[in-house]
Each structure stands twice: as C-alpha cells, then as structure tokens.
Design a protein around this nucleic acid. Structure first.
Lengths: 202, 202
DNA sequence: CCATTTTTATACCACTTCGCAAAAAATTCT
DNA sequence: AGAATTTTTTGCGAAGTGGTATAAAAATGG
C-alpha cells in the first residue's frame, strides 16, 4: 500500500496532462487535433500518451467524461436547494458563461457541444457520451424545478420537465453563440431574458 | 448570352455536386472529411473539385452559405405574416425536425451548428459564417414576433427580442439533441413545451 | 553492484493528406 | 480538318497521420 512504484517515475501529472489535452480538443475539435499536437500540449511524447490513455479516441472520451462530471457537479452546487431558484439558475448560467468565454482563442463554448456534436454522427461512443451529458444536465435542472413547484417557488401548474428543457435550451444556445463569437454582454442579455421567461418576470 | 461554352463540357452538375458535398460534411464534419471522400461523393475527381470550388475550406463555405440561404428562406416561408403565430412557429420547428432527422446515419441536426461550431474557434471565416447564420434566424424570428405584438397576437408587454432568443434557443437545442440521437417523439415533446412557453399556454 | 521494473526517448512504419503539374479528352470556332 | 478552349484524367510529391517497435533512462529490490 505504502511505497513508491517500482520503475522509472512518471514525468507527467495525469490531471494536468488531461487538462491540456482537453483544451487542445476544445479549441480545435477532435478530428482536427493530431497526436503531435496533443503530445506538444501535454509534454508527453506519443508513446507515453498512448500508454497512459490509449488511442486518440480513448483519450478524447476520457477527457469528455471528466468534463461531463465536472459540469454535473458544478450544476448541482449552483442549484443547491436552499438557494432561491432564480439565484441558483443565475449561478448556473454565470458559471457556464465564464467557462464558455474562457478560451485563449476567443469564446469556445461548451466542450461537449462544441466538439462532441461534430463527431456524434460517425462515432457511436461519442454520440452516447454526448447524449448522457445532455441528459444529466436535463435531470439536474428538472429536479430543481420540480422541487420549486413543490415548495411553491413556482406555480403548481408549472411543468418541471418543460421548464427544464427550456433551461437546457438556454444553456445550449449560450454554448453555440459563445463559440460563434458573441460577446459576454450579448450572452448576458439572453440569460436575463431566459430567466424571466422560466422563473416568471419578477 | 446564347450558346454553349467553348471547351469540353462539364461532366458534373454543380448543384447536385454541392448537395453531395454538403451531405458528406454534414455527417462527418469538416475536419474529418477528406478530399478523396468529397471526390467520391460528388463523382468529381480532385482536380475538378479544386478547379470548380477551390480548396476544401472554400468548398465548405460555399456549401455553408447555400444551407444558410435555404434555412433563411424556409423560415421566411413558414413565418408568413398572414399565418397565425403559433402555426407559423410550429411549421418552423416541423421543418427543422424533418431536416435534422433526415440523415441516413441517424439524426444529424443542423448543418451550421453540427459542423460549423467545431471549426469556429480556429477558422475565423467559419466563425463569421456561423454567426451570420444564427443572426439571420434571430432576425427572422424577432421580426415575426414583433409583428405579433403589434397586431395583438401577443400581449403588448411581450419583448420580441427576448422571445426570439428563446425561439432560437429551442431551434438550437433541437439541432444538438437530434445529433445526439434523441428520437422524434422526444424532440416533438420539447417543441410543444417550448411553443407553450413562447406563445402562451393556449 | 547487478537484476528488475516502469517510463521515456528515438526512430520508424505504412498510409493518408492536400494540392498541383502535365497530359489526354471533348467540345466550339474558323 | 485543324486550332483553340475548357474540362477531365492520371499520377506525383512533400508533408503529415496514427500507431508501434526498440532502445535508453531512471527508479527499486536483492
């Protein structure tokens, strides 16, 4: 249990290597990213990359799943049930925007949507991962909205599933528009309009 | 004015060649599509392709612009101002769904979003084309919604720009979800929920 | 100090990629 | 028929592709 591994120690840190690989895929997409670029970005040479993470698609799917888990957890944190609905949703969108606009090459949107959608038709594994990612977010939103109906934050007649779809649609449009180059101001206007429509124009 | 061109006649029809190229890009994305595949799909060999449409990106942008124009015109037709708002929007989404689900390899979503977003960060021309495409649809939706407020189809307090953003968001979420493999039934449920929220739950 | 183990580094492989040059083919004009 | 023009066809070439075999390096165990 205790001690250091036996052979030559690793020169890389898996977490940071995966983060670098993610950023490279994020900007360029899966197909346009070469193993040489991934090697340069991670500082690992190709055989090490291969040994650590498998082939290019396996590496991509690993990165994808980590992004997916992070997104789910961030959403759960933002939507903590003791926080008012509108404030929680506001935090979801603020967190999304700061991710989507954080690229060095300009707005890069959501990793799953921006890079996964392109591969989804020809790569069943990517399509499944994308579908799972979307559904996790749907489920997180719907759970919080259902609770809001139960506690009276929303009118009893409100349909949680329907509102969750719209809340997700708002996220998706932000993801695409950020990647298309829209400014933070534009995106925040869209968020404000969407929140009014979902939570009621308070 | 009149007559046939001078040299050897073309063996291809530009319209059908562009449609075939579009379908290939649509399924596979820009980066994953090779000139050999485009050559096979169009029936033109590589030098002919190159002579007719320029390099791969020029061909892609040509296809993109044609798709964009077709989408804009289809939306204008569906939103004819003499048709009731809800019916017009319903036609927009029905037309979108039949496009988005028409692929031979399963749902393929919107060409612009599904293939353009991936390239938008690294290719400024694609990002600009994508932004233009999105904004054209925004404008079409907003114009019709503004009219609906003026004619009393929507309450005077309704904000046409805000509603147009949500209507566009609905289109975007359909584009992504279709590509992620969701069924027509799922997508139609989302459309129905969205129409209720935008037009009022009549 | 040498064997063992694990990782890194170098070099290579077969294949594909985009793009183009040069030649051949099919048409119109004179 | 022959020249001119436009397109298609063939084939090439330099670079890049994903992936791997082999050798070198860096650690631990005896």
């Amino acid at each position: 249990m205790d001690s250091r591994r036996r052979g030559r120690p690793r020169a890389y840190d898996a977490d940071t290597a995966l983060a670098r690989a993610r950023d490279t895929f994020w900007d360029q997409g899966f197909a346009a990213t070469s193993l040489d670029e991934l090697s340069a970005a991670t500082g690992m040479n190709r055989p090490s990359l291969y040994g650590a993470f498998g082939d290019k698609q396996a590496l991509y799917l690993t990165v994808f799943d980590r992004y997916r888990a992070a997104a789910r957890e961030a959403m759960a944190r933002a939507l903590a049930p003791d926080r008012p609905l509108r404030e929680g949703l506001g935090r979801v969108y603020q967190a999304a925007l700061s991710l989507y606009l954080s690229g060095e090459a300009g707005g890069r949107g959501c990793f799953m949507i921006g890079t996964g959608a392109a591969e989804a038709v020809t790569r069943p594994e990517v399509r499944a991962a994308l579908a799972d990612g979307l559904h996790e977010l749907d489920a997180g939103l719907e759970a919080r909205l259902r609770r809001a109906v139960e506690t009276g934050e929303l009118p009893a007649a409100a349909d949680p599933a329907a509102l969750a779809w719209m809340a997700a649609a708002l996220l998706h449009t932000l993801a695409i528009r950020a990647r298309a180059g829209e400014t933070r101001a534009q995106l925040e206007a869209i968020v404000a309009a969407g929140l009014d429509l979902i939570c009621g124009k308070a």
